[in-house]
Design a protein around this nucleic acid. Structure first.
Lengths: 243, 243
DNA sequence: GTGAATTTATTGGTATTACCAATAAATGGT
DNA sequence: ACCATTTATTGGTAATACCAATAAATTCAC
């Protein structure tokens, strides 16, 4: 069943035409009437599609002149490919510092909430959600919204990449106990208000994760791929951080 | 001159109605025909407005049922207020780690580009742009796009807040020489591939900045505000980082 | 009386047509 | 060759009609 309304199909078709290069940025689209005829729909439908494209900032409508293709403002978020290794390394660095900061500012209430996530993770129900909560609570405990935002953005990045989600799924599910133990260590450091220890524990957490990622990717890879992996292994290593 | 097309006005009116609480999330808007009458426009015009709102994810159209108001998905980017102090502290932490990482991976070409920004800054032309380039080059030198994105997002955050831009403007313009000197120190550390020194130099850079921000804000503030400031000064201090 | 099936009214979806206003191209006069 | 005028093109808005899906009201069977 195609429940979509007609004009969404037209949006898609026009967008495809633009992306194919048939109508480069700055050029003018055919008049509404022509588009309507060539797509075998009515003019209002074409108008609706054009309005949708206009709201999306893909085209600009100049009254009595025509519809012009706008420059693609590429989301840099989308343009830069990010691997699971990069993401994990970035998380280690940023969340490591966040933990160090949080150790000085965290409240008893937040420590209690952290404890709850540990319990939830131990019971194994919604372990992944408890994982996320754990990290978010810590980032908020920094009392620094810029840091919170940075951590949230990394999480968003993780969720927006299917290959990263897949990679994490492989790793997390097979080492729940490690993850729990590491979270406990971070929690203890925070409870002790020990910045250094909190940073270090966070680094260890992600170091294990990154090594697991390498193991999985190596196990899957052919010999040739293995060689490349070992080259990049040095690049994303956290060995200089884990004391 | 109101060159805007009619339907944009309708979009505005409907959005105002929604924001005013007249149509809370989940509720149904009046039928197109009624809206057309009450706004004294034709039905197609109302349809166009609704489509614009739909593309913006403000409403959901259910065929033959009605138009329903969606939950405002507030950009957390916008909802969380971020002060210049928070931003600067976050930059210190994240860019400090970025510099430490970059020290191990930076290329000669990138060092040369860094040098150019130093020269530009010395000449005083486009000093602010040179500043930005300096930091971006370093984040890209990490070979970690997740880190690059994090740094870029912080910059975007800075540019999106007028009060932060204003605060930075006050501080940067009055201490160009300090900034240049600190950049040189960071450059030297990177050229020497000295991670520790690079991190430390970056921390010093932002530490000076944060202290300048405090001075400016204190100079401007009344006595009472001063007291609050000195309370939060401890919160955003980098003293635990600068050795 | 109650529940299910049917009918009816409402509502958005699409198409057709018409006319307006602004723009851009073609034309003509100087 | 240049400028003013005319003409054709193009998007903007409106009015209308009919369709299809939904939801409400009604009817009917039990």
């Amino acid at each position: 069943m195609k429940n979509k309304r007609m004009f969404w199909n037209i949006v898609e078709k026009i967008e495809t035409l633009i992306d194919s290069g048939a109508y480069p940025p700055g050029s003018r689209l055919p008049p509404e009437r022509e588009l309507a005829e060539s797509f075998s729909v009515s003019r209002p439908t074409v108008r609706e599609a054009i309005i949708a494209l206009e709201v999306r900032q893909r085209v600009e409508v100049k009254t009595s002149s025509g519809v012009y293709v706008l420059e693609m403002q590429q989301d840099k978020q989308e343009s830069k490919p990010v691997s699971a290794f990069e993401l994990t390394q970035a998380r280690a660095l940023i969340e490591g510092e966040a933990a160090a900061l949080a150790a000085m500012t965290i409240t008893e209430a937040e420590l209690a909430k952290l404890k709850l996530t540990l319990d939830a993770m131990q019971k194994g129900i919604n372990a992944d959600q408890a994982d996320k909560e754990f990290h978010v609570i810590i980032s908020n405990a920094t009392r620094n919204n810029a840091v919170s935002l940075a951590v949230e953005n990394l999480w968003r990045l993780r969720d927006s990449r299917d290959e990263i989600k897949a990679a994490y799924k492989n790793v997390c599910s097979q080492s729940d106990s490690d993850r729990l133990e590491e979270h406990r260590a971070i929690y203890t450091a925070l409870a002790n208000k020990d910045s250094q220890a909190a940073r270090s524990a966070m680094h260890h957490h992600f170091n294990r994760l990154i090594n697991s990622l390498f193991e999985v990717s190596e196990a899957k890879a052919l010999e040739e791929v293995k060689r490349k992996s070992s080259e990049t292994r040095g690049l994303y290593s956290l060995n200089h951080l884990v004391s």
